[in-house]
Every structure is written in structure tokens, then in C-alpha cells.
Amino acid sequence: MSKVYIALQDNDESRYIVEAIEESNPDSTVIHQPAMIRIEREGRLVIERAVVEEKMGRDWDVQELHINLITLGGNVDEDDDQFVLEWKQ
């Protein structure tokens, strides 16, 4: 299985998103680089709206992810409740 990855700008909003990712994907790897945070996981990674909202303490639209996104690798599937990155092989 290959790794999917996502990188976010290192800022206040992303810190909550990263916390939510770590909670939803227990064995993911978080790598801090200058000005950015990269998160990797074998096969699949999910960002759940409800978890992000809980961390931020406010409503959060999954599409807000675009504002802080730098790059990603994997097939994307997005709906109102979650954002999924996945390799299908």
C-alpha cells in the first residue's frame, strides 16, 4: 500500500485541522517543515467535519480546507461531512 499525503500552511486554523486529522487517523505521521505541515498515512486519510468543528469550536465547511491547503497525493472524495484521500490499488 502507498502513502497518501496532505500538506497545509502552518497557521492557526491548520493547527486545529491537524489535530482533527490526528484524532481521526491514529497512525498518521505529522512532519513539520518551514512554513508548512505535512501529514502522511498508509492508504487512506480522512478529515471529518464534526471533529474539526469540535477542535475549532465553530462551524466549519469542508470546502474551507482549500484556503490552507498546499498539496496532496491520492484520490480525493469530498462531501458535506468529510474529505477523503485514498489510493485504491
Binding site: M36, H66, I67, N68, L69, I70, T71, L72, G73
Partner: peptide
């Protein structure tokens, strides 16, 4: 990074 935030959609 602002450009790259669009890039994820382009990818």
C-alpha cells in the same frame, strides 16, 4: 503557498 492552494485542486 497561496498559488499552491489552488494547485491541490489542479492536481
Amino acid at each position: 503557498f497561496s498559488a499552491q492552494s489552488d494547485e491541490a485542486r489542479h492536481m
